[in-house]
Structure formats: C-alpha cells, structure tokens
Amino acid sequence: MNYFLYQGCSLEAGGIHYTVSLKAVAKVLGLSLKEIEDWNCCGASISYVGGNELSVDVLAARNLALAEAQGGMDIVAPCSSCYIVLNKVNYKLQEKPGLLAEVNEVLAEGNLKYSGKIRVRHLLDVLFNDVGLDKIRSAVKKPLNGVQVAGYVGCQTVRPFGEYDSVEKPLIQDRIIEAIGATAVSFPNKMRCCGSGLFLTELTACYELARDILGDAQTNGGKIVSTACPMCQMNLEAYQKRMNKALGTNFNIPVVFITQLMAVAFGLSRKEAALDRLLISADPFLKAA
C-alpha cells in the first residue's frame, strides 16, 4: 500500500511524537509513506488573517499539484487540519472548473498545474478502510487489556465532510482502540471543539472548552485521552497545567496519539511509541516493550 505522506508543520515540531509513532506503526502494517517533495504549509485555520480565499486555495493546490506531478498516489494527512484544508480545496477545484483555471493561472508562476485527480485522506480512514481491523488485530502482541481510553475525535477529523465516519457519532477511532485490546469509553463531548488555532490568543475561552472535554472524558472513566490530531493533542495536553491554575481544576490526564497506543500494542519500544515525548506521562497506564 503506497501513499504520499503530507506531514505538515506540526508533525515536525509540537506533534513530532505523532510522526515517530506513525512511522513505526506503518512499518508493521506494511504502509509505504513517501513525503511530497518540497511541500508547503496548508495554511491551517488561521490563514484567513493574512491571505484572501484564493491565496489560501493556492497554498493547498500547490501541494496537490506537486503530488500529481510526483506520481499521483493518495495523500494521507495525519493532521486533521491539513486533511480538511487540502480536502476542502481539492473538492472545490474538482467541482468548479472556473476556480481550477484561476488557480492554475497562479500555479503557473512555479510551472505547476493541477488537473484534480488526487485523493486526500485522513490517516484514520486509511487505517480503518485500507489496512482494516483484522490486520491491526493480527499485529497486536501486547493487547492493552483493561486500559480505559477516551477516544477524542474533535472537529476537523471528520467535519465537515464525514467521508469515512459519521459527523455526529464517529466510531472509527473507538473500533481501533478496541482492536488493540483497550476499552473505548463513550463520552458525549468527544465531538466538541478544543479551541483549535485560537488557543494561544483566546486562552480564557479555550480553557473552558478543554476543561469540558477532559472533565467529560474523566467522568466517564477515561484514564487516557487518545486523538488523531496534533492541534487537539497540544491544546489538551501542553496547556493542562496552566488551565488547572487558571480554572482551579486538577487534571493530570495523558493525551496521546492513537498511533502511540497502537505502537505499544504492537510490542514496539517506548522510543518507537514516542512515549518519551509526552509532557504528561502515560507510563502509569501503558507499559511499552
């Protein structure tokens, strides 16, 4: 199974543990992930401040054009924000020939052209639909028996397109959590927004969003929160201490990527699972090889 990996900026810095664990898991599952050469930032959800809609479309389109020129395989975006931006623009370009022509006029500045043939997919989609739960199950060497995981989905992992999972009641991450032997706890706020790119600039409002998500996960028995989005991971984990101070709460919940849980269940080392990169240790609940 061959794919382009659109890594995105977060996965090289704040979300590096997503990359490390994803690559280790992909090796076990036989996924070949090739980086798009000379990719650029997708613009995420804050690019509207500096760029008009056409500029933002061009940022995504340049990546799509590069992927098309470099072989045309499906793009896998592990970051939910990259996934949604690339996908949104891709659909627009496929549906509006006028816009595609306009964008191509701009891309010509770099001798690039996009014809609209690329497919953009989220990592969860590929894990569930291409790899499949059976294959994931058969790779498990150390099932995470008894570990209660709150699978936090957030927004852009499934919204707005709902291509591979429900936009109101998504279940795929929970199925993967169960396939590796853990227990997926159900909690109503698993679809609530964490604050996304506004976290740093709208702290007070976003602390409340994070509190509601973590509180709900904990009340319903979650010991670890799992996510498939680097923004959610960062907001819920890295700000937890400061949030406690600001709101008088006392959370100490590890927030990990689904690929980190998979790596542990596949019997990989602590380093391959990137458990050493967590600000809030998951060691009390996860014992890596």
Partner: peptide, 13 residues
Amino acid sequence: KMLDKAKAMGKGG
C-alpha cells in the same frame, strides 16, 4: 510569486 498573484487576483479585500 504565487501568493502575490493570488492576492492581486482574488477578492477578499
């Protein structure tokens, strides 16, 4: 160059 061109061509302002 692309971003400059898109800025000039698009509406948004």
